[in-house]
Design a protein around this nucleic acid. Structure first.
Length: 581
RNA sequence: GGACCCAUAGCUCAGCUGGAUAGAGUGUCGCCCUCCGAAGGCGAAGGUCGUAGGUUCGAAUCCUACUGGGUCCGCCA
């Protein structure tokens, strides 16, 4: 139940009456007509811009249209007042029972309240994390993981058919480096002294892998040339790293539907097939790229390469798909991978990358556009840097080889729930400050705590009500006489709840899960506000001693808040707290 | 040289397919606990929305240029 779309329909109906009466011309475009909460609540419950949007095409003054619309809408029993204001806004006030209906809908639907169908029939692939399988996930990956996961959940909530996917970069040179590094650890496990030179991964996390390899193959590879062991060790190592990564993701509460291997694209003709498709469209050619302007790379020399004419699809320069030694560039398997996604029938693709991949966006969009003839959209969301702090001081990571702040460090220190919520309190394209101490602070300026506290408070109220012998099952609360919910402070909270379905759709349309986090903070704030009013006005307290009927109505309101908080936290992947400790 | 992202209160940030007097937290200042809900509450001050143009009935929001910050720019993935 989305009260805003319902009232918007009412506005449309009223407009069609005006058309029939000849007040307005027929066939007006109503796409830009909105019904939204006014910025200033004193203006009413909802406001529509219909009169202003339609004034020009109708050739009438906005206020005249607004007046006519107001008269028409006033006949709707749901609307108590319709007032023209400002340049032609129409401010609507709704009957109290409309908000009561919202509460009943919440209690009936549970955490499904607010689910939308705007994505119905849309298959969406969300690719995120996709970290190289060469080590544990670090804090930067964590933000991408949290963001991608919340976005996927959000899209699911808006009715999309969502696939969560991880692209394993197991086809490039970096996994050879991994294999050599593991081999060194393997030799070390055999008691040899080894040195980690540049171009190897010296991290401690490979020690166990080396030992495990020894346990598996004994001394079979000791003293052998690379040709003997490289492939085996590479496969073994990447699998070990992926196990590590899966465990990291699990610790964060992230579960993928698909792990897609880059390696599986090689030697199977799939890269070739994708490029042949582009070639058939006349988008592949042999050529020489212009050197970048400004400061020239030192070793620059003109070179003929196989190029993808990405400029045909919005890119700034054409991009190479082959290196001079004939091997594929990284871009080539990526084209094949995205072609595979297109072939799997997705209507929309979303890639979540780190901000350092910003330069990659246009060519990837160009590739998807070319491969799907513009039928499939690719949205690339870049997550900006995470700056770590400890007690307000920048948290210095040791630059010593192999040590960095890992996902595991963060989760162990503050927990998955806090990590996820905090990382979603900023939009993806803004840098994020993460202070290990502040995120655990129990105060109003910590949004995680504030939202969880609201939920716990309501749980506490319900426990007390229950202990007093009051039935607080959702079905009972839904049948309570909500006429007891009549105070302005209570209705304000109910209005906030009514905004949830609308918020979900906005967040889903813009692929911006952070809006959910901010909404939850606002909702929690309204709940705490009502709670505090109870300090001075005992009649606003949720528990009304000796008056079970009123108590049930008020608990219904509180419970509705919790249902929405649970639904919102569910999208963010955070577990609601039943009590604060 | 070019591309992308960012610029909103002292600080950290929200701001809906363009809407009314631009919001929150924090900080500052002033009030409020003998008791019933103070990990708090009430109130005040605080803004040329980076600058300059443009589109529009209406711009923090869209367009252009500029300034400042970040990221990136052919054989790294």
């Amino acid at each position: 139940m989305n009260l805003f779309t319902e009232i918007r329909s009412a506005v449309f109906q009223a407009l069609s009456v005006l058309e029939a009466d000849g007040v307005l011309p027929e066939g007006l475009n109503l796409d830009n007509v909105t019904v939204e909460p006014p910025r200033d609540p004193a203006h009413g419950d909802m406001a529509t811009n219909a009169a202003m949007v339609l004034a020009k095409p109708a050739g009438k003054k906005p206020r005249d249209i607004a007046e006519a619309l107001a008269t028409q809408l006033a006949t709707d029993p749901r609307i108590t007042t319709a007032e023209v204001a400002g340049p032609g806004f129409l401010n609507l006030r709704l009957a109290d029972d409309q908000w009561h209906d919202v509460l009943r809908a919440v209690l009936a639907a549970g955490t499904d309240f607010g689910r939308s169908t705007i994505g119905q029939g849309q298959r969406v692939n969300v690719e995120y994390v996709s970290a190289n399988p060469t080590g544990p996930l670090h804090v930067g990956h964590t933000r991408g993981a949290v963001f991608g996961d919340a976005l996927a959940s959000l899209l699911d909530f808006t009715g999309h058919d969502v696939t969560r996917e991880y692209y394993i970069n197991d086809g490039g040179a970096q996994v050879d480096v991994l294999a050599r590094s593991v081999y060194l650890r393997y030799l070390e496990a055999h008691g040899q002294a080894v040195a980690f030179e540049d171009g190897t991964y010296p991290g401690d996390y490979l020690i166990a892998v080396g030992k495990a390899l020894k346990a598996k193959v004994g001394d079979a590879y000791v003293g052998q040339p690379e040709a003997v062991w490289l492939e085996e060790v590479r496969n073994y190592s990447t699998e070990a790293m992926m196990e590590l990564i899966r465990a990291d993701l699990k610790a964060l509460g992230v579960e993928m539907d698909v792990f897609y291997s880059e390696k599986s694209l090689y030697g199977t003709g799939r890269i070739e097939a994708a490029l042949e498709l582009l070639d058939a469209k006349g988008l592949i050619y042999e050529g020489v790229l212009e050197p970048p302007k400004g400061k020239l790379p030192e070793d620059w020399e003109p070179r003929e390469q196989t190029l993808f004419k990405s400029t045909e699809h919005g890119d700034d320069v054409d991009r190479p798909v082959k290196k001079s030694d004939g091997g594929w560039t990284y871009f080539a398997p990526d084209i094949a991978y995205h072609f595979d996604k297109v072939s799997r029938g997705f209507d929309a693709l979303i890639d979540v990358f780190g901000a350092d991949h910003g330069g990659y966006v246009k060519r990837m969009k160009a590739a998807v556009s070319a491969l799907s003839d513009g039928q499939v959209t690719l949205d690339v969301k870049l997550t900006q840097l995470v700056r770590l702090f400890r007690n307000g001081e920048p948290f210095k990571m040791s630059k010593r080889a192999g040590t960095f702040v890992t996902l595991r460090d963060v989760v162990d220190l503050v927990g998955a729930d806090v990590t996820r919520f905090v990382m979603l309190t900023r939009k993806n394209d803004a840098p994020l400050d993460f202070d290990f101490d502040k995120v655990l602070e129990q105060s109003k300026d910590n949004p995680v705590f504030y939202v969880q506290y609201a939920h716990a408070r309501v749980c506490s109220v319900m426990r007390k009500a229950s202990a007093a012998g009051i039935d607080v099952a959702d079905s009972t609360l839904g049948a309570a006489d909500l006429g007891h919910i009549s105070h302005e402070a209570e209705l304000t909270l109910a209005r906030k709840i009514a905004e949830w379905p609308r918020l979900v759709e906005i967040a889903g349309r813009t692929n911006e899960p952070h809006r959910v986090a901010f909404y939850l903070y606002d909702l929690a704030s309204d709940l705490h506000g009502l709670w505090n009013r109870g300090h001075d006005l005992p009649e606003l307290r949720f528990l009304q001693e000796g008056d079970p009927a009123t108590t049930q109505a008020k608990v219904a309101l509180a419970r509705s808040v919790n249902v929405v908080i649970s639904a919102g936290l569910g999208i963010l992947g955070v577990t609601p707290a039943d009590e604060m400790r």
